[in-house]
Design a protein around this nucleic acid. Structure first.
Lengths: 245, 245
DNA sequence: ATAATGTATTTTGGATCCAATTCGCAATGC
DNA sequence: GCATTGCGAATTGGATCCAAAATACATTAT
């Protein structure tokens, strides 16, 4: 924050946006270059639908139909589909189009084990960097999750809780990889969270993780996170129908 | 293998391709659906050029020029660029095009640490599954690397050596993530391998890793791999010029 | 009736065309 | 002289058009 004299003789209080102090404007500026393209909007909408399970495994994604529904041409749709394919959320075969990708039991197991390895490392390195603000936010999401009666909201609240803690790690590469891994299995986790007892177990484990973070016990937070994820893996093994590739 | 009577009265020896035994053909069949599209070919060519450092950080990738060089339209080029962006190899800004992405020192450090964590896990789980064939192949790449006088080949040979050992793990998700992580830093590793002493050090460490695998000591192979990667990180920290965000 | 073949429709991949934005540079005003 | 403005070229994002392949369906021969 600085005081500036404008050319109109007014003294204005302004934030120095976009780095340079050359141009003093009296309004909030946004980087218009970040405006979403049609392809990005379609990509995000389709990703959300797949991650949340609205588009089910094996379902064909017709370019023409998607283009009509978004009132766009097929070009941005194809761009969105290539993005989804790079993330492993759809599988494409030449001249046959894209279908929503599924996971076999073995693939799901592998992703859970991967998450256990990487997320335990992330949270262990995040604990020393957690501010009070982050711990408060995490506790908020923890309580939202515990109090929520809406099964459709559990997936997001669960993810918000973990993500808030992880964000303190300042490890963007790790976080990007984990974000992708989460997207791949979230569908199955959501169905699993509504199973009997799973919700309560998750809650108890969340509380233990949160308390370890609050007391600054990185080692314990790491081990609890590892157990939390491997427990979800074992639980899914019992409930998950044989499916996928 | 089975003996079949063809409609021409000939007895032919054939492999049962593609599952069904209904159609008896006297030649090797390939799945034509796997033929590469123009977009894939362009993507792979550009990725190779970026990974090997032929396209340097910050360099702009003009759709029109690339399209001309591949004798194609801009459509498959744009598809290739979106794939590269998803892999973090280029950065795109709306209406400004794609530029080759670079790594800051901090980002490179993070990727090295990530690799140390994940690859040590991979090789630890791979050791019990390594066949004689895999160990022989790995030794072959090790010796190729040791004997090669061509610095341009070192990058590939180094990667082949590690990849052969990792492939025994049967962890495709882990391997996909690591493949991507390797692509992001290979440019810097290549320049580093030609530095004084780095080549010899890598060789000695490779030999130790290989011997641990041959003796079935998973724990030791894991620790040596971790040290090998963290050593490369420390070395790069000394040699790498301050660059790219 | 059934299996094989031929044909029409659907769908994808790629080329071409158009609009919107950025960039380079000259012209202008202070 | 230097910052600002206005235009034209270069470049990207998206729409439309066309060719190639796949799928569905009708036809034919056995």
């Amino acid at each position: 924050m600085r005081f500036l004299h404008s050319t109109l003789g007014l003294v204005v209080l302004t934030k120095d946006i976009l780095g340079e102090g050359k141009c003093s404007l009296k309004f909030q500026a946004v980087d218009i270059g970040k405006a979403a393209s049609a392809a990005t909007l379609i990509f995000e909408a389709l990703r959300k639908a797949i991650v949340e399970g609205d588009l089910v495994e094996g379902e064909a994604l017709r370019q023409d139909e998607i283009a009509r529904r978004f009132n766009a041409s097929r070009i941005p749709v194809r761009e969105a589909l290539t993005m989804l394919e790079q993330q492993g959320l759809v599988k494409t075969e030449r001249y046959k189009g894209a279908v929503v990708a599924g996971l076999s039991l073995g693939e799901a197991d592998e992703i859970f084990e991967f998450r256990a390895l990487v997320e335990s490392e992330i949270i262990g390195r995040a604990v020393p960097k957690m501010t009070d603000r982050i711990l408060q936010d995490a506790r908020g999401y923890f309580e939202d999750f515990r109090n929520s009666k809406d099964p459709m909201a559990w997936g997001d609240l669960n993810r918000n809780f973990h993500w808030t803690l992880y964000s303190a790690s300042e490890l963007p590469f790790y976080l990007g990889v984990i974000d992708n891994a989460m997207n791949r299995i979230e569908r199955y986790l959501r169905t699993q969270l509504v199973m009997s007892g799973e919700n309560e177990r998750a809650n108890a484990e969340h509380l233990a993780i949160l308390e370890a973070c609050e007391t600054g016990d990185a080692q314990r937070a790491s081990e609890l996170t590892r157990a939390h994820i491997l427990g979800a893996k074992a639980s899914l093994r019992l409930h998950m129908p044989q499916s996928g590739a």
